[in-house]
Amino acid sequence: MGKSNSKLKPEVVEELTRKTYFTEKEVQQWYKGFIKDCPSGQLDAAGFQKIYKQFFPFGDPTKFATFVFNVFDENKDGRIEFSEFIQALSVTSRGTLDEKLRWAFKLYDLDNDGYITRNEMLDIVDAIYQMVGNTVELPEEENTPEKRVDRIFAMMDKNADGKLTLQEFQEGSKADPSIVQALSLYDGLV
């Protein structure tokens, strides 16, 4: 993909415009910024974590950033290329609610087996709590990752089998306004 070129080839721009919710001009602008920050044309896990640390200076986002990195890194080569970056950004910032929920499901399904187990969710929720640090005051019933996961599973795990399917996750998330709101945070920002 033209590693350190400051412009993408027209056919690449066209393809990314088809695969995302961005215009050709927006794709070019994002590429310019991506190459400025990642001259090699790729972003590794350490660089990704560094970006998260800028956004969450009062907590430790390392663990959460690693989980997000793994979802962005579609081809699992340990690096995020621009096409992976822009497609994930498109879903998280401008995707439909169902697209965002499928993306979030992939984030929580750490072993990619098609289910979110209690332990997988606990890993992610714990990482989120570490990331936000003491900057967020949580209600008593959610002031630990374990309590939050218990509440989520009580609401979403309809067949009580200890794991969530994509359908259970989507339906449960849509029924909880706070989850829908959290997924909409990026709307309109890009």
Rank of each mutant, 00 (worst) to 15 (best):
C38I: 07
E137T: 14
E142G: 08
T20D: 12
E99W: 00
K163M: 04
D126V: 09
R151W: 11
G95I: 13
E168A: 08
E141K: 12
L8G: 03
S83D: 01
V68C: 01
E142M: 01
A182V: 06
K163Q: 04
E168R: 04
K158G: 01
F85H: 10
Y31V: 11
L183K: 04
E24H: 14
F55T: 14
I152T: 08
Y31L: 15
M155K: 03
Q54G: 04
Y129Q: 15
T117F: 09
Q87K: 02
I128F: 11
V13S: 10
I51D: 03
S4A: 07
M155V: 07
C38W: 10
L164V: 08
S184D: 13
V91N: 05
E168G: 11
R79W: 04
S184W: 09
G133D: 07
R18K: 03
A46R: 03
N75C: 10
K50I: 05
D123C: 05
G114A: 13
E81L: 03
F55A: 05
L185T: 08
S83L: 07
S6C: 04
L8S: 09
N119G: 02
I35T: 12
N143Q: 11
N159R: 01
N75R: 05
R148M: 00
S93W: 10
P177T: 00
V13G: 15
Y115I: 13
G114Y: 11
D187G: 13
K19H: 15
N159D: 13
F22G: 11
N134C: 02
M155E: 03
T117D: 03
F169N: 03
Y129P: 01
N5V: 12
W103F: 07
F56K: 01
Q49Y: 09
I152V: 09
L166N: 14
P39N: 09
Q42P: 10
E99Y: 11
R148D: 00
N112E: 03
G47R: 02
I116M: 02
F34W: 08
F22K: 14
L166P: 11
Q87C: 00
S4C: 15
L122R: 08
G41R: 08
K158V: 10
G47C: 06
P39R: 06
Y129V: 01
F55Y: 02
N134F: 06
Y129N: 05
G95R: 13
T117A: 07
I35M: 15
F153Q: 06
R79G: 08
E99A: 09
I35G: 12
C38D: 01
L189G: 15
L89K: 13
L8K: 10
T92S: 10
L97A: 05
E11G: 14
D150L: 08
E74I: 03
S90E: 09
N70R: 12
L101R: 06
D44G: 06
K53W: 09
R79K: 03
Y108P: 12
K9A: 05
E26T: 14
V91K: 11
A104Y: 00
E120M: 02
T20W: 00
F22V: 14
M155S: 08
E74A: 04
S4K: 05
D123G: 11
E137L: 10
K106T: 13
F55W: 08
S83H: 12
F34C: 00
S6F: 02
L97F: 08
V68G: 12
P139T: 08
P39T: 00
N5W: 14
S93V: 03
I179S: 13
E120C: 00
F34E: 01
D109W: 13
I128S: 05
N112S: 09
R118S: 09
G41W: 07
P57Y: 01
K9L: 11
G59R: 11
A104E: 09
V125Y: 01
P177N: 00
N134M: 03
E142N: 00
D77H: 09
D37G: 09
P39M: 10
F69D: 01
E26S: 10
A182H: 14
Q42E: 10
K147G: 03
K63T: 10
I35H: 14
L164T: 03
S173W: 02
F72I: 02
Q28G: 13
I128E: 02
S178T: 15
V149I: 15
V12F: 08
S184G: 12
I86D: 10
E171D: 05
A182N: 06
G172L: 14
K25H: 01
T92H: 03
P57L: 00
E11P: 15
G114W: 05
S6M: 00
A175D: 01
V149A: 09
L107K: 01
L110C: 07
D109H: 05
D113A: 12
T66W: 08
I35F: 10
G133Y: 07
K158W: 10
L97Y: 12
D77T: 15
F34V: 04
K158A: 00
Q54I: 11
L185I: 06
D44Y: 07
S83R: 03
R118N: 03
N134G: 05
I179Y: 14
L138Q: 01
A160Y: 04
E142W: 09
T96I: 08
R151F: 05
L138Y: 02
I80L: 08
G162N: 01
G78Q: 12
F82E: 15
F153L: 10
E74W: 12
G188I: 08
V125G: 07
D161A: 09
C38Q: 00
G33T: 03
N112T: 09
D109Y: 03
D126T: 13
M155L: 06
S40R: 11
Q87M: 10
K3D: 15
D37L: 14
R148P: 00
I116N: 03
R94F: 13
D73A: 13
Q54L: 09
D60C: 15
K50Q: 07
N5M: 04
S90C: 14
K63F: 02
A88E: 10
A182F: 07
Y129W: 01
P145N: 10
Y31S: 15
G78R: 11
K32M: 13
P61L: 10
G78W: 08
Q28E: 09
A154H: 06
L110Y: 00
K36M: 08
L185M: 02
M131G: 15
N143H: 08
D157Y: 10
S6H: 01
D187V: 10
N159S: 05
Q54T: 00
I152P: 01
K19M: 07
D176V: 09
L97M: 08
L189S: 10
V13Q: 14
S173N: 11
D60W: 14
V71T: 13
K63L: 13
N75D: 05
D187Y: 13
K63D: 10
A127L: 01
F153A: 07
E171C: 01
L164I: 14
A160Q: 04
K9C: 06
F105C: 09
Q54C: 04
T17A: 12
F22H: 15
P61V: 10
Q29N: 12
F56R: 01
K147Y: 01
E74F: 05
